[in-house]
Simulated assay, not measured.
Amino acid sequence: MATIEEILQRETRALVFDLYGTVVDMQSGLTAAVTPFLKKKSWDGNPSSFVTWWRRTHFEDSMIDGLLDRGHTPYRQIGHRAVSQVMDRCGIKHTQDEVTWLVSQIELLKPFPDVIAALNQLKTRYKLVILSNGDRDMLENARPHIGFPFDRFISVQEAGYFKPHFATYAAAEEIINAEWPHIERSGIIFVANHAFDCIGAKSHGFRSVFIDRRKRPFGQSPNQPDLIVANFAELAATLAPQS
């Protein structure tokens, strides 16, 4: 009887990756960016906590945007709101230019150390695609900083909703099918460091892999991932083993 690893190796044709926090190191990268800024502002709190509050506020606001269903708000715009709210929370006086600069740092984020080598190993067997909540232009600006030639970058703007709305995964599938007609839904694996994203993709009908970098339980969702791996090195070793 074949193992799940063997089945995935045999049937998979494309891997679709979340970007922020899965491919690029959002927490560490943004913490490095905000630390000198917060020091100039004489804020004596923990810069990593500032970034955590920023990311949580952004996530909550993007989920609210999807639930209201009154038109998609750009990722950058929600980012501006989130950063402004956290600055107010911290009692930091700021200008809109400073908010814009902080949000722009998202476009400069670098991959986790294990990512590029793993992607080079995976690309020998699969099409590699990004599906991100980021705006189209943000993804385009991020390309040189990611440093890997993904086969396709897809923004949720194509669907008009943020992940994990089913329409985002459906839009990605449609784009992939248009470019590579031989790739069916069962041949697509979605890869993310976030349980909510894996749940959304699995609910749509993709297979999924959870990158458990933070060593946190996935939870009791009925939409469990097909695989749980510790990092990208384990992902590549599992899906594209080298002889």
Score class of each variant (00 low, 15 high):
Met1Leu: 11
Met1His: 09
Met1Gly: 14
Ala2Asp: 07
Ala2Trp: 03
Thr3Lys: 10
Glu5Asp: 15
Ile7Ala: 11
Leu8Thr: 02
Gln9His: 06
Arg10Glu: 15
Glu11Asn: 10
Thr12Tyr: 05
Thr12Ser: 15
Thr12Pro: 10
Ala14Phe: 04
Leu15Gln: 04
Leu15Gly: 02
Leu19Ile: 07
Leu19Cys: 15
Tyr20Trp: 15
Gly21Thr: 02
Gly21Lys: 00
Gly21Ser: 02
Gly21Glu: 01
Thr22Leu: 06
Met26Gly: 08
Met26Ile: 12
Ser28Asn: 14
Ala33His: 08
Pro36Asn: 07
Ser42Tyr: 01
Trp43Val: 01
Gly45Leu: 03
Asn46Ala: 04
Ser48Trp: 01
Ser48Lys: 07
Phe50His: 02
Arg55Ile: 11
Arg55Tyr: 11
Thr57Phe: 06
Glu60Val: 10
Ser62Leu: 09
Asp65Trp: 00
Tyr75Asn: 15
Gln77Trp: 02
Ile78Arg: 05
Gly79Met: 00
Asp88Asn: 09
Asp88Pro: 00
Cys90Pro: 07
Gly91Tyr: 00
Ile92Leu: 06
His94Tyr: 07
Thr95His: 00
Trp101Gly: 01
Trp101His: 07
Leu102Ser: 02
Val103Tyr: 01
Gln105Arg: 15
Leu109Ala: 10
Val115Ile: 09
Ala117Asp: 14
Ala118Val: 08
Ala118Asp: 04
Leu119His: 08
Leu119Lys: 06
Asn120Tyr: 04
Thr124Glu: 15
Lys127Leu: 08
Lys127His: 12
Gly134His: 02
Arg136Ile: 15
Asn141Leu: 04
Ala142Asn: 01
Arg143Thr: 04
Phe153Arg: 05
Lys163Asp: 12
Phe166Trp: 11
Phe166Gln: 13
Thr168Gly: 10
Thr168Trp: 01
Tyr169Gly: 10
Ala170Cys: 03
Ala170Met: 02
Ala170Thr: 00
Ala172Pro: 06
Asn177Phe: 03
Ile183Ser: 06
Glu184Gly: 13
Ser186Arg: 13
Ile189Gln: 08
His194Thr: 11
Ala195Lys: 10
Ile199Phe: 01
Ile199Ser: 01
Phe206Trp: 13
Ile211Phe: 05
Asp212Thr: 08
Arg214Trp: 06
Lys215Ala: 12
Lys215Thr: 05
Pro217Ala: 00
Phe218Leu: 03
Phe218Tyr: 14
Ser221Gly: 06
Ser221Pro: 02
Asn223Gln: 09
Leu227Trp: 07
Ile228Arg: 10
Ala230Lys: 05
Phe232Gly: 02
Ala237Arg: 09
Gln242Asp: 12
Ser243His: 10
